[in-house]
């Protein structure tokens, strides 16, 4: 009986270089062919590392290529993609970074990864039609409830995460401290806008269905309200304004 190579045995050996090439994998001479098998070991890990580099360019830049390659290697072997849609690959990379000891000296790194992944998700989100900006000129606007486009998300960081990302990609050095970040997609390219710590509470309150005015009260005093509303409008963030006509 010739040895049969199950796909389970194949993939285990392919993802673990310490395991031997499965018996039954041969060259044209019928002899075992570990170097031939290693083509697959290499292809899988190299292609997924490329996906990580494409998906997290700022993280890669912050830690440098050799470190990022080593970190990605460990991540990929522990968390292979769960879907053929590689645009979604890396969702749990921020969480992985928080537990990755060698990166502990860069406490903001996980937030940068979180931001990069949020921008990537927004890039692929469904297209929606935002409300006419004139709707915000309604005198009663603060009594309205707002619906968000799927492209909108928010995150909190103890660090100036948007600036760190920009600096990592070749921009000026970061200044300042903690940020709350609003991600919007004005047309097809998502952007991240920083606001004072606590601003995300407004988004949370709006998503919970509170009227605009009440939601704003949940935000920080330091918030530049016109700038915040301006970002919602220019970012096409609001798809519906509804008034409770009681």
């Amino acid at each position: 009986m010739k040895p049969q190579v199950s796909q389970s045995a194949f993939i285990q050996a392919a993802m673990n270089p310490d395991l031997e090439t499965p018996r039954g994998i041969v060259g044209p001479d019928g002899m075992p062919a570990p170097k031939r098998f290693s083509v697959y070991r290499n292809n899988i890990i190299v292609s997924l590392k490329e996906a990580m580099n494409d998906g997290f360019p700022a993280v890669a830049s912050l830690v440098g290529e050799p470190f990022f390659a080593a970190m990605s290697d460990i991540y990929i072997r522990q968390n292979p993609p769960k879907s053929p849609i590689l645009a979604l690959f890396g969702a749990d990379f921020p969480e992985f970074i928080t537990k990755f000891e060698p990166a502990a000296s860069l406490p903001y790194l996980a937030d940068v990864a979180r931001l990069e992944f949020a921008l990537r998700l927004a890039y692929h989100c469904a297209d929606t039609t935002p409300v006419d900006p004139q709707a915000f000129a309604n005198a009663n606007v603060f009594s309205a409830t707002l619906s968000f486009a799927p492209t909108v998300s928010a995150l909190r960081s103890d660090y100036p995460v948007t600036q760190i990302r920009v600096a990592a990609l070749g921009g000026p050095q970061p200044t300042g401290g903690a940020e709350d970040v609003l991600i919007t997609r004005p047309d097809l390219d998502p952007i991240a806008t920083a606001f004072p710590n606590g601003t995300v509470a407004i988004i949370d309150a709006l998503q919970a269905g509170l009227p605009f005015g009440e939601a704003i009260e949940a935000g920080p005093d330091a918030l530049d309200l016109p700038a915040f509303i301006g970002t919602l409008i220019s970012g096409g963030a609001i798809t519906k304004l509804e008034y409770d006509n009681v």
């Binding site: 993939i11 392919a14 292609s47």
Partner: peptide
């Protein structure tokens, strides 16, 4: 070819007998 096993996607075109 195959590329998926046990919910994992391995992003290569793997061979079959």
């Amino acid at each position: 070819a195959w590329s998926t096993h046990d919910m994992g996607f391995y992003n290569d075109l793997l061979p079959l007998p």
